[in-house]
Design a protein around this nucleic acid. Structure first.
Length: 471
DNA sequence: ACCGGAATGG
DNA sequence: CCATTCCGGT
């Protein structure tokens, strides 16, 4: 049968980013993930749901960073079934699939809490547009921390390099890579770490990525080498971008673009660049329609390459755009390179007090008690280990390959489907910040010092401090 | 509810 | 590879 899944429909021509001076690697333009444009993956889907307000009654972030609760398992399964054209999908099966992620370290179960899982992004690397992504990725922010700052994120040159295959080297200025004397193939180039101060190895570990450092674009914490400065309006010529359909749950090709989402979260200049018209597109799942605005998913709005589902970060991949393999990846966690991004947990209290969760309590089982995890950020060492014995870093007993793979995860999507600022709830929001934040990741509980009311810069300071303490 | 093995399919 | 489906076991 041909269930008419939306996913089958509209597979838009590959989007592309034409921003001059900001070339993306070939793979970035690939519609889906590298390896043969796979189908949507469950965890991608989960993330998608999570970032959509419409589904908060069904699944939502809750608890620790990266932790989410499936409030309505059946519904989630149903949605997944629709997406995959598997009419007989049910939570049992879906959960089986989720369980497979344990080994891959993409997810793990939060024991003791029903229907609660947690993304493990500590090893996850945002591939596409790391810089911005990191800014948005609460996981990234948080987990680096939580998983023991020790668990360094991939800051190794290799890792980073793999992240920036051959990025922008826009006109002026330094290129991302040091084209060394010796010719460097796609593999030979060395990424200049200094390019990403916040990733920097020697550099100070910012508790937050640049884009979160300050409320306004005014003074970027640092300069962006290749002349690209996300804070500057010209950074992304959104105007020239071909638009894509809203990051809908369906066509995976439409994965929200990190970059864009990042923009949407950036202060005015950028957010305003984002074309309105967004989400909504869903066919109100189970009736919970997109309250936002029912604009059918007709209008495009992405201008970046769609999210490559599972890009492999293997540096080799890059040159050959096509067959990216997920083959052996670079050891991403070189023992020595540990430096974490030290990103603070700060999710910028987006949600803290907001109505992130709709009372769709279900089966009276799902506890909604953020407190349980709400200890300090630091506490979370448990995180992956919530029970996860073998969390001892990577060396997954199984296959190191798996491990690396999970890091590959790139995000892609995290913020993308955020409703355009314009469609966000009225400014009524208590905190201005809120608008800047991803609705997605709710920092369940912030240390007092990080309360949303705190000025951003203050927080930054604060975070820095914490960071120092931690170290 | 949750787990993970096994078989199977795309 | 990534699920999907089934299923026995906790």
């Amino acid at each position: 049968m041909d269930c008419n899944c939306v996913s089958d429909l509209l597979l838009p021509p590959v989007p592309a980013l034409w921003t001059p001076g900001f070339a993306f690697p070939d793979w970035a333009y690939k519609p889906e993930s590298s390896p043969g444009s796979r189908q949507i993956q469950l965890w991608h889907f989960i993330l998608e749901l999570l970032q959509k307000e419409e589904y908060q009654g069904v699944i939502a972030w809750q608890g620790d960073y990266g932790e989410f609760v499936i409030k309505d398992p059946d519904e989630v399964a149903r949605l997944w079934g629709i997406r995959k054209c598997k009419p007989h999908m049910n939570y049992d099966k879906l959960s089986r699939a989720l369980r497979y992620y344990y080994n891959k370290r993409i997810l793990h179960k939060t024991k003791g809490k029903r229907f609660t899982y947690k993304f493990n992004f500590s090893k996850v690397v945002l591939v596409n547009y790391p810089i911005l992504d990191m800014a948005n990725s609460p996981f990234f922010l948080a987990q680096n921390h939580f998983n023991g700052g020790s668990t360094a994120p991939d800051c190794s040159p290799e890792a980073i390099q793999s992240l920036f295959p051959r990025l922008p080297d826009s006109g002026r200025g330094a290129s991302l890579f040091d084209r060394g004397t010796t010719a460097a193939g796609p593999e030979g180039d060395k990424l200049r770490l200094d390019t990403f101060p916040f990733l920097g190895s020697g550099a100070p570990c910012y508790s937050k990525p640049p884009s979160l450092l300050g409320p306004y674009p005014r003074n970027p914490p640092f300069d962006y080498p290749w002349g690209f400065n996300p804070y500057l309006p010209g950074a992304f010529s959104l105007n020239n971008c071909p638009k894509l359909p809203p990051g809908s749950l369906y066509p995976s090709q439409f994965y929200p673009n990190p970059l864009q989402s990042s923009l949407s979260q950036l202060p005015h200049p950028f957010s305003s660049l984002i074309p309105p018209g967004d989400a909504g597109g869903e066919r109100g799942a189970a009736g919970q329609t997109a309250g936002t605005n029912g604009t059918a998913g007709g209008q495009p709005r992405l201008c970046l390459p769609s999210y490559p589902g599972s890009l492999s970060m293997g540096r080799t991949d890059i040159g050959n755009g096509a067959a990216l393999g997920e083959r052996e990846r670079v050891e991403v966690n070189p023992p020595g390179s540990g430096l974490g991004l030290g990103l603070g947990p700060v999710g910028l209290g987006a949600v803290t007090g907001t109505g992130q969760q709709s009372p769709t309590e279900r089966r009276g089982g799902v506890k909604q008690d953020p407190e349980s995890d709400s200890d300090l950020e630091i506490t979370d060492l448990s995180d992956c280990s919530s029970e996860n014995e073998n969390e001892h870093e990577f060396s997954i007993g199984k296959e190191s390959r798996l491990a690396s793979r999970s890091q590959v995860v790139l995000d892609g999507k995290k913020g993308g489907a955020l409703p355009p600022i314009s469609s966000l709830p009225p400014p009524a929001s208590p905190h201005p910040l809120k608008t800047l934040m991803p609705i997605t990741p709710p920092p369940p509980s912030l240390p007092p010092s990080l309360s949303p009311s705190m000025a951003l810069h203050e927080r930054h300071r604060e975070t820095e401090t914490l960071k120092m303490i931690h170290s």
